[in-house]
Computed example of a mutant assay.
Amino acid sequence: MGLKRPTGDELARAIAERTGHVFSDLRLLETALTHSSAVRAVANNERLEFLGDRVLGLIVADMLFRQFPDASEGEIAPRFNALVDARTCAQVGVELELDRFVRADAALKARMRGSGGNYLADAVEALIAAIYLDGGLEAARGFVLRLWQPRIHTVVAKPPNPKSELQEWAARIGDARPEYIIDRREGPDHEPVFTVSVRLAGFEPASGTGGSRRSAEEAAASAMLRREGVWEAQEGAP
């Protein structure tokens, strides 16, 4: 059984240790960390997520504008897109251990454990909005810069398309084409989780999960590419 999720002052102290911001409005903090899937929740973080996405975008755009004064829009736009991407937000959520503090459906959290998941990305954006509303733009800026500035030199080449790469690899080694099959669809309509397997003649199937059919297919293709050593040899994929 996991540790009990902290609330009230205990939650505020834990979040302050991770963000550097001490909340005056604890209800705002609780709302930021309440996912729409949470049972019996009076309010959830969807509106805060909407605002936080825009606050994050403003701060990151300003950071890049100042950091790269001679770069063209075409040079900084891909970096911006990578920094505000949901995957980056989910990574930040993992670093902050927000899974310990987010109130969400237990089954949803269990399915996403270890991969970050959309609910953590949502929580990070909502937390940014909550800090902004509670302490102003500079408080939000301090939080974002501390966690996003170290990522500013992250490789921004367009990420590989695993489905396309799997299809190209399959064509090089034979005539078979990858086939994707939905094994399961779980979760509520607003937060579905798909499990998809990819099958290729002559190879064991590989599976992946995601919040959409497309993302699950990409995860399955990635799993096969890694298992067969294609990305390690050719792409340096983790």
Score class of each variant (00 low, 15 high):
118 N>P: 07
31 T>F: 07
108 L>T: 12
67 Q>A: 12
81 N>M: 12
37 S>L: 11
77 A>C: 01
82 A>G: 00
31 T>I: 14
73 E>T: 03
67 Q>L: 12
99 D>F: 06
68 F>R: 01
50 F>G: 08
113 R>W: 14
102 V>Y: 04
49 E>W: 11
60 V>S: 10
66 R>I: 08
75 E>V: 04
80 F>P: 00
83 L>M: 08
46 E>T: 15
107 A>M: 09
42 V>T: 07
93 G>K: 03
68 F>W: 01
118 N>I: 07
31 T>V: 15
61 A>G: 02
119 Y>K: 02
118 N>S: 09
110 A>N: 04
35 H>L: 12
58 L>W: 11
79 R>H: 08
37 S>I: 05
82 A>E: 03
61 A>S: 10
104 A>H: 04
55 V>C: 14
26 L>M: 00
115 S>N: 10
98 L>H: 07
78 P>S: 08
88 T>R: 08
99 D>W: 09
39 V>R: 15
102 V>D: 06
72 S>P: 03
86 A>H: 02
37 S>P: 12
106 A>S: 15
71 A>N: 00
60 V>R: 09
31 T>G: 07
58 L>R: 14
84 V>K: 02
88 T>L: 04
65 F>I: 15
62 D>C: 05
41 A>D: 14
72 S>N: 09
86 A>G: 04
118 N>Q: 06
29 L>N: 03
58 L>G: 04
34 T>H: 12
33 L>M: 06
103 R>K: 04
107 A>H: 06
85 D>H: 07
95 E>L: 13
66 R>Y: 12
39 V>Y: 13
82 A>F: 02
108 L>I: 11
47 R>W: 14
